[in-house]
C-alpha cells in the first residue's frame, strides 16, 4: 500500500459519501444518473467475486464490502425509495448503458490476463468502470446547472482513478515485477474522460461561479 493508492481509495470513498449525503440530505437524485450508479454496482460485483475466497487484508475486504453495499444502496434509493424515485428524470438519463456493458464484456473475452472466469470478470469490471461515468457526464451536460454535491461527487470520482495512476507509476518504479497494463491503460482512458469536466469544474471554482457544462 502506498500513499497514492490510499489517497485514491479515500477519495473514492469520499465520492460515495458525498453522493449518499446529497441523496439523503435533499431526498432527491436530481442530476444523478441512475445508469451510472447501476454500472458501478455491476463493476463492484464483477470485480469482487473473490471477496470470500481471496483474503488480502482486513482493509481490502472491508472496502470491497463498503463499495458493493453503497453502490447497491444508491441504486435501490433511486429505483425504490418513493421520495428519491420521484426526482429521477428518466428523460434526461437516456444513455444506452447496456451497450457499454456488452462492449466491455466482449473486450474482456479477448483482452484479459488469464482466460479464467475470475480474470475475465475482473477485466470486464475494469473496462466497464472506465466508461461507467459516461451516462452521468451526458446527463450533466443536459441538465444545465449542476448542484454542488453532484459536482463534487463527479470530481472526487474522477480524481480517485487519477491518484491510482500515480500509484501504478510508483509501483512500477519500486516493484521489480509490477505490471498491470489492463488497469493502467483503462485507468488513463477513464481519467481522460473527465478532462473536460475537470476543466469546467476548475473554471467554476476559480470564478466562484456555478458549475456549468456546455451542451
Amino acid at each position: 500500500m502506498n500513499i497514492f493508492r490510499l489517497a485514491g481509495d479515500m477519495t473514492h470513498l469520499l465520492s460515495i459519501l458525498v453522493l449518499l449525503l446529497k441523496i439523503y440530505a435533499t431526498k432527491s437524485c436530481s442530476g444523478v444518473s441512475r445508469k451510472t450508479q447501476e454500472l458501478y454496482a455491476i463493476v463492484f460485483l464483477a470485480r469482487y467475486l473473490d471477496l470470500f475466497t481471496d483474503f488480502i487484508s482486513v482493509y481490502n475486504t472491508f472496502m470491497k464490502i463498503v463499495f458493493i453495499a453503497s453502490s447497491l444502496a444508491i441504486v435501490w434509493c433511486i429505483r425504490v425509495h418513493p421520495m428519491v424515485k420521484r426526482s429521477y428524470d428518466k428523460d434526461l438519463d437516456t444513455f444506452r448503458h447496456y451497450l457499454l456493458v456488452a462492449a466491455s464484456f466482449l473486450l474482456a473475452l479477448f483482452l484479459h490476463e488469464k482466460f479464467t472466469f475470475l480474470e475475465i470478470f475482473w477485466a470486464f469490471s475494469i473496462y466497464l468502470e472506465a466508461v461507467a461515468i459516461l451516462p452521468q457526464l451526458v446527463l450533466l451536460q443536459r441538465s444545465g446547472n449542476v448542484d454542488n454535491l453532484t459536482g463534487q461527487y463527479v470530481f472526487f470520482l474522477g480524481a480517485y482513478r487519477g491518484l491510482y495512476i500515480l500509484n501504478w507509476i510508483y509501483r512500477y518504479l519500486t516493484e521489480p515485477r509490477f505490471t498491470r497494463w489492463i488497469a493502467c491503460v483503462s485507468g488513463v482512458v477513464q481519467t481522460a474522460l473527465y478532462a473536460d469536466f475537470f476543466y469546467y469544474y476548475f473554471i467554476s471554482w476559480k470564478n466562484n461561479s456555478k458549475l456549468k457544462l456546455p451542451a
Binding site: 493508492r5 473514492h12 473473490d50 488480502i56 481490502n60 470491497k64 475482473w122 505490471t179 498491470r180 488497469a183
Partner: peptide
C-alpha cells in the same frame, strides 16, 4: 505470495 496477477488493489 500470490503470482504477479494477484489482485491486491480495489
Amino acid at each position: 505470495v500470490k503470482d504477479g496477477t494477484s489482485k491486491d488493489e480495489l
